[in-house]
């Protein structure tokens, strides 16, 4: 019976300020959509990096006059670095053979090349592609080394862009969430104002503070939760209709737009959790400021 009372009070409050409620709901939805967007972006970047990460390696080119001693020294240096997963030595001969294989259809390219013209090198693959630059810098100064190259520049840029994009999206989402909480607080303020007589009589006859507050809290949480559901539906719809198509279209990029059910569920949980938090925050704000009990 009590729950019935709370729910019907909530419904009356929401209907009385329909426009305000709609404004609050849509602001919640938009702020959460941004939050969801940031999460999806994070998933895409994680997919991209995991697809491409295996392909990132550091090439350490050796000078032609490298001595056996220097070679051994380098070997033990590389073996000691924890960031390095494996490394292999590629002799001048092997390098020439690989080159020949790579351009097998263009014999004119390698036929003119002396067999020892390509440098010997270490090919280093890393545990984490993000360490490429650091590993390269550390190896660079050692004796016997001519040059150090590392791929993964694209990934590094991608990660940088991602960090920036994520910060901007999350920042905007945070600002909008505060706005959403303020709108919810205002909706509740109007509801409190509309019911000030009832509230004063409730206090008079000895209704407990929680009994007076709960319908308003329900109202805030309901508005926020509705916003969360709207944004969840948008995320789910985008995943079903848009991302899967995009994934097919951009198949050469690898499976960057496919997310596991758990990953999507996690995003949705974050949205709903964020929504409830915004709703509670807005309600508490309004009740503290406008409902002296």
């Amino acid at each position: 019976m009590r729950l019935n009372y709370f729910l019907s009070e909530t419904a009356v409050n929401l209907r009385r300020n329909l426009l305000m409620t709609i404004a609050a709901i849509s602001t919640v939805a938009i702020s959460l959509l941004l939050l969801g967007g940031a999460q999806i972006l994070q998933l895409v970047v994680a997919n991209v990096t995991s697809t491409w990460e295996g392909k990132v390696e550091v090439s350490v080119f050796l000078r032609s006059d490298v001595t056996e001693g220097e070679l051994d020294g380098l070997r033990s240096d590389l073996a000691r670095m924890p960031e390095i997963e494996t490394f292999t030595y590629v002799s001048k001969n092997q390098a020439y053979e690989e080159f020949k294989e790579l351009y097998a259809d263009k014999p004119e390219l390698y036929e003119v090349l002396p067999k020892d013209s390509l440098p010997a090198s270490f090919r280093v693959s890393l545990v984490d592609a993000a360490d490429a630059e650091e590993v390269a810098a550390r190896v660079e100064g050692s004796p016997g080394i001519d040059d150090v190259n590392f791929g993964g520049d694209i990934i590094r840029r991608l990660l940088q862009v991602n960090t920036l994009l994520r910060a901007v999206t999350l920042g905007m989402s945070a600002v909008l969430m505060v706005a959403a909480a303020a709108l919810i607080a205002n909706t509740i303020r109007l509801a409190i104002f509309a019911r000030r007589e009832e509230i004063s009589i409730m206090k008079l006859v000895g209704a407990t503070n929680w009994f007076i507050r709960i319908p308003f809290m329900f109202e805030g949480v309901f508005a926020a939760l509705t916003g969360a559901i709207v944004s969840s539906i948008v995320v789910l719809g985008a995943n079903e209709l848009f991302f899967s198509k995009m994934g097919d279209f951009l198949a050469f990029l690898g499976p960057v737009f496919s997310f596991s059910a758990w990953e999507i569920t996690k995003v949705l949980l974050i949205l709903v959790g964020g929504g409830v938090a915004v709703g509670l925050f807005g309600s508490v704000l309004a009740l503290r400021r406008f409902l002296e009990v």
Partner: peptide
């Protein structure tokens, strides 16, 4: 201090409902 949008019955019932008395 009566609530204008409630009937006589509802006004009095309100005082019991909000302190959680059974229907």
């Amino acid at each position: 201090k009566l609530l204008p949008n409630k009937t006589v019955f509802e006004n009095v019932a309100f005082a019991l409902e909000v302190i959680g008395r059974p229907k």
